[in-house]
Design a protein around this nucleic acid. Sequence first.
DNA 1: CGACTATCTGAAAACGTTTGCATCATGTCA
DNA 2: TGACATGATGCAAACGTTTTCAGATAGTCG
Lengths: 353, 353
Amino acid sequence: MSPTNPAANRPARTNGKVTVIEVAAEAGVSVSAVSRAFNPNGSCSDKMRKKVFKAAEKIGYKPNRLARGLKSRSSLIGILVTDFDNPAYLAILSDFTSAIQKRNCHSLLINASQQLNIAEAVELVMQYQVDGLIVTSTTLPQRLVEACQKQNTPVVIFGRRSRENLATVVCCDNVINGRMAADLLLDAGYHYPAFVGGPIGVSTTTDRQRGFINRLIQRGCDHWTVCEGGRHSYDAGFEATCKLFRARDRPDAIFYADDIMACGGMDAIRYELGLRVPEDVGIIGVDDIRLASSRAYNLTTIRQPFSDMVNTTVDALFEHIHNKDLPPKHITMPCTLIVRSSTRAPGIGAAQN
Amino acid sequence: MSPTNPAANRPARTNGKVTVIEVAAEAGVSVSAVSRAFNPNGSCSDKMRKKVFKAAEKIGYKPNRLARGLKSRSSLIGILVTDFDNPAYLAILSDFTSAIQKRNCHSLLINASQQLNIAEAVELVMQYQVDGLIVTSTTLPQRLVEACQKQNTPVVIFGRRSRENLATVVCCDNVINGRMAADLLLDAGYHYPAFVGGPIGVSTTTDRQRGFINRLIQRGCDHWTVCEGGRHSYDAGFEATCKLFRARDRPDAIFYADDIMACGGMDAIRYELGLRVPEDVGIIGVDDIRLASSRAYNLTTIRQPFSDMVNTTVDALFEHIHNKDLPPKHITMPCTLIVRSSTRAPGIGAAQN
DNA sequence: CGACTATCTGAAAACGTTTGCATCATGTCA
DNA sequence: TGACATGATGCAAACGTTTTCAGATAGTCG
C-alpha cells in the first residue's frame, strides 16, 4: 500500500475480464491515467504511457469500444445498402470498409433491400449511435435526414442526387451522361436509339433518360423509344431487350442505365435475336464494371469513378463528423466515356444524318 | 409527488437526449420497469408495457444499443471478409446481413483484404464485443479461435474447412468437387486436362486440385497439368490460361477453381487463342455465379449452395451464441453439377478412353 | 529562492442500460 | 381467515469507459 501506488489498495475485482481497472492496478496508476494513455490526445507523459502500455500488454488488455462509445464516439459508421444486384457494389463495399478502417472506425452494414424499409433501417442504425451514416444507391426522405441531424449524426448520400439540399451528396451528373451516350450513338450513325432504364423513380435512371432523350431531340432525332428496365440485373436487361425487339420498330442502338443490364441486353441481341453487335445494334452502358472490359462483352460505357467517389464520400463524412456545423454540399464527379467495341466507330454509316 | 409516481420526484435531467429515465418519468414508473417493458422476456404486466410504450412513443425514445451492450449482448455480429474479388460474395454478403437482421442483430463488416491482417481484424472486431463472428473465405489460426473462445465469442468459418477442430465450419467437400470435374471431363472425352488454381495454400483450391488430379490418375489419365492461378479474378483466369497454352503440350480441357476465373479463361481461349469452347477446349468452373448462366458464357460448373450455406452458418452461429458449450461441428453441404455448354456432351469423342 | 506557469495525474461523476434482490400486491388453497 | 406461492414492481449496483475538476509536480524566470 505504498503511496506511489494509488490503485493497489482498491479491491481488485478480478472477475475474468481485464479492464482499465486491472491495468491501472498492474501499472500502479489511476484509471484515468490508463484511459488517457490509450487516447491519442489525452494529456499524458511519455513515461506514463510506456508504463501503462507495458502493463496492458502484460495482462492482455483490450479496450471495450462499446463502453467507450457510451461516453465519446462509437467509431461506428453505418452503411445503408439497397442495391445488392449491381455487381459494382462489391468493389464499392470493399472500398468503403477499407476507407473507414483507415480512419480507425468500422462499418455497420445494413441491408435495406428486403425486409427492411429505409426508415426502419435508419432507425436501427441510429440505435448503435453511429458517428456517421452513408446511404448508397437510394435517397433519403427529408424527414429521415432531419432525424439524423437531430441526433447530430451526419449523413452522406452516395450515388444519387437528392432534391432537398439537406444532406451532403456525392454523385455524377447523369443528365450529362445521358447526353454523352446520345452523342456517341448518333455520331456513330445509329438512327433509332432506345433507352432501357433501371428501377422506376430513381434519379440516376430518370436523369440518364432525360439527358439522353433531350439530346436526341435536340439533334433532330425524332425516332426513339424507352423501356422501363426493372432491377439493375442481367436478367432485367435481357428481358427488356427482348421486349424492345418484339415491337414493330426495332431500335438499332440501345443505351442501358447500367452495365450489367447492357451485358444482359447484348446477350439477348446476339444469342436470342441473332443480331450482331455493333454492326446491327450498338450498345452503351454506364459504370464500367469489371465485366465490361471482358473480351466477351468489351462494352462501350460511361465510367463512374467509383473508387474516387467512395473516398470523396468518406472524406466528406468525416469532415462533417469533425465539424458539425459544416453546411451540406453537393459534389459532382466527372465520368469518362470508354469506347470499346459494342458501338461502331464514329462516322461509319452516318451518311443519313 | 404522489406515491404512485415514484420517478416524478427524481431530478429530471433533461439534457436533450431521451433515455429510459425520461420515459420512466413520463409514464410515472421506475426505470427498471421501462427496461423490462422493452425486453421481450422481462417480467412485466401488459398494462405496464402498454403504458411504457405509449410514453416512449410520445417523447420519441429509442434504446441505445451501445449502453445495452455494456450489460447484456451487443447484438453485433462480426463478418470478416478477405475475398472481395469473387463476385459471388456480393450475394453472400447480402444474404448474411439479411439473415442476421432477421434475428434482430446487425453486421459489423471487417475488410481484411488489404491493410489489415486477420489477427488484427479479429482483435478489432472483438473490441466491439460482438456476439459472434463469421469468418469467410479464409481460415482462422488456432490461436485466434482460442482468443475468441476465451472471450466467449463463438466463431463459424464459412466456405473453408480448417485443419483444427476448434471452430464450427460450414463448407463443401471440395475433394469431391474435384472428382466430379475430373469425371465429367473424362466422360466427355477430353484427354489432356489442366487445373487452374486460386490463391496458393487455400484449402478450397488445394482440395479441388487434389480431388481432380487423384481422380484423373485413378481413371488412368496420366497426362495433365496444373497452373497456380493467383487471385479469384477474371484477369487471373485469363492470364493463367494464356500461360497454359504457351507450353508445348496444350490442354484440351480446364478445370478452374472458380467461375470468374473460368470466364476469364474462356475469353482467353476464344478471343486470344482463337479456339472453340467446348469443341477444342472444355471448361468447367465452381460456384455457379450469376454470370455463369449468362448466354455469353453458359458455363458448366459445380454449384455451391451459397444461400443455404449462409443460412446454415447463421443458424449454427446463433446456436452457439445461445448455448455456449455446444461442441464445434463440421457441416458439409452438397454441391451439384450444372452441365451447360462449355463442355462436350458425355460420350462424344470419348473413343480413345 | 519564491512566484508563477505549464504539464501531469487522480478522484469521482457521468454515459444509458440491465438485473439481483427486496418488497408488495394479488390470488389460491386449506 | 391465514399461510403461501406468484407475479409485478422499484431500488441500486453494476457494465467499462471518458472527462471535468482540482490538486500535485516539476520547470521557468526574475
